[in-house]
Design a protein around this nucleic acid. Structure first.
Lengths: 200, 200, 200, 200
DNA sequence: AACTAAACGAGACGGTACGTCCAGTCTTTAA
DNA sequence: TTAAAGACTGGACGTACCGTCTCGTTTAGTT
């Protein structure tokens, strides 16, 4: 059969405390000052307990992010591209404004320092987000709302790139007006019509 | 006049050695492992000498980046938007591929950990790059190549965002085909014509 | 010339504080519980400062022992063997009773766990103590107080062995009566006379 | 009567495995590196099983020592003091050379760190060894081979002290020549005759 | 034969200390 | 009088064990 399950089982209480402490510290002090030592102190937990379950502080923060993001997933239903994309972007930006931004900024920074984590971050979080939006675009393309010359992956880079760029550089707000403007820009970009440049 | 210039003069040799060491370490080992201590060792210099001239390791790397980027600035001249944007993007991506990518990734990571540097990074480097591209877009708008409904700042976010996003996530290459595709996408997006959504 | 001496010199204040803290902790809590971490805390010093100057906690304790033993060295002068040996042993045992015992027990324990330190301990401390007593025995032998059949190194093992054995096992006191009895035993053992067994 | 004896009985197999693993590790790697964790791993046993039966790692090693020493006990029979003492010492030193030395060094080190174990070590192992040798000396004294002025306990300290001292410091071998030399020294020391110093 | 209870292996737990790296500051000598 | 060099305090790192705990499993003796 499967592997036998022996030994003391994992303490869910500790797990919760650790993730909770990471959340709290990130929201209070921001990414700098978020250390494994501080989390262990706050959670009333030994450092090895953290290392046992997460290879890296970044992986722990990623799990914390996913935990709180899961509640707000809400796959967008149907309708026109505009009516699907707008709530997707509004919701994404709302999650960022409501605290997720600190997580994302921390994770992106760590991804630049740890190639292993960068790969995990790319393959789990980023790829998942891209997949969600890509399915939206694919349905729009099937409905004929997107011209045949459009490269959907380029569109993903444009949309997520603009959000990440604003988040990381911090030169402009990530709010509902931005979500709406980005929606209109993308909708305007993709609409089929006369030839407007060839994708190479 | 002002303060007399007495005392031991600054050693330009040390300055060069420091920046050179930073360049070398960044290219060899990447962002992780780039520390002030390592730079001081490599440059044969005391740590305080570094702290005296740069407030932060990130500022030092930023200077190193600007130093090597200055040679490749070459403001794009005239012609159509396509003919101006394409070399601009090709050149930008070539600089990234030729080693600048490590600098940029390091700087963006540090900006997420140090709000003070983030501001300097935004106000010097990022703003400068935006200004260059914006002047290109403005000239194109004057020539009527860009429709009146376009928000130029949104275009900047799209272009730089897509580049940064690919650089940071690492899911796709930053190369000439990408530069060309991005050029075509932007050119197609901005061309004036029938109404295609209103910027809010 | 010799090597130039630049840079901040070693802080004698820290050195004193470290050794003092080690002394204090050893006297208060005994060998168990004497850790580098605790010494650093007590001395108000960073751990690396300790590691910079002593390879091992044991080496630090050894220096602390030598520092306080230096004051009580007082090489025994002349006279008969009995008149020289007795004060030597009394003084040695007084030093043990006055606090040196904790140091010695700690050091001997560490020597059993760290072969490198064991060698240093043997070559510096133990060899030095043996040399002092051996010179006493040599002078006595020159004066004819020790029979020709005696192996002086065996005598050293007997004298130091008995002291260490009592100290480590703890079955009997290390005090003045013991010093005097040991003196008489050795003096009786070595006196020349009829043949009493041959050293092999 | 007392508590009924129900439940699973102690596993002798585990006990053997634990003691065997301790023996093996001690012989292979010496005292440093002998940990309960390593023993449990090697023996294929859970840590609590070890803690259930021995209060301390030192107590476990002590039992391992006694188990292998029991085979070589061989109480010395009769004859002169020399003829009794010499095999006793030879045998003791052979046991040390054959592997018991590592056990003894480990135990003596642990006795310095744990006062509770020091007492047990003293009251069981050391006292037993002293009793054996003391009975030898008593019989010799009854036969008149030892002068009336001799303090037998001092003799025990001399003999065991010299052995332990060599074992712990490591400045000289513990071998048959040493056993013989020590025998002759003791025999020469104790022989009755003209007055040779008074024991105080 | 079924029940009971202790000992078993496994391994996670909260902790302590380890020895190292680096940050940023301070103090001295050299230029 | 400033630059340069190196020792400083201090915090966090990731690891090794400690001794305790909680599991599911095994194994005898008791009913």
């Amino acid at each position: 059969m499967a592997t036998a399950k022996i030994g003391r089982p994992r303490s869910e209480k500790s797990r919760e405390a650790i993730i909770g402490a990471a959340q709290a510290l990130l929201n209070e002090k921001g990414g700098a000052g978020l250390t494994i030592e501080a989390i262990a102190r706050r959670a009333g937990v030994g450092k090895p307990t953290i290392y046992r379950w997460w290879p890296t502080l970044a992986d722990l923060v990623l799990e914390a992010l996913l935990r709180q993001a899961d509640e707000t997933i809400a796959v967008p239903p149907r309708g026109s591209l505009r009516e699907t994309l707008r709530p997707f972007l509004r919701q994404s930006m709302k999650a960022i404004a409501d605290g997720g931004g600190a997580h994302l900024r921390f994770l992106m920074a760590r991804a630049q320092m740890d190639e292993g984590f960068r790969q995990r971050f790319r393959d789990t979080f980023a790829a998942r987000r891209r997949a969600v939006l890509k399915s939206v675009l694919l349905r729009a393309a099937e409905r004929g709302e997107i011209g045949p010359g459009q490269n959907l992956d380029m569109l993903l880079d444009l949309v997520f790139g603009a959000m990440w760029y604003r988040l990381l550089i911090g030169h402009a707000a990530i709010d509902e007006p931005f979500a709406d403007a980005l929606t209109e820009t993308i909708v305007g970009l993709v609409q089929p019509g006369e030839f407007r440049g060839q994708y190479i």
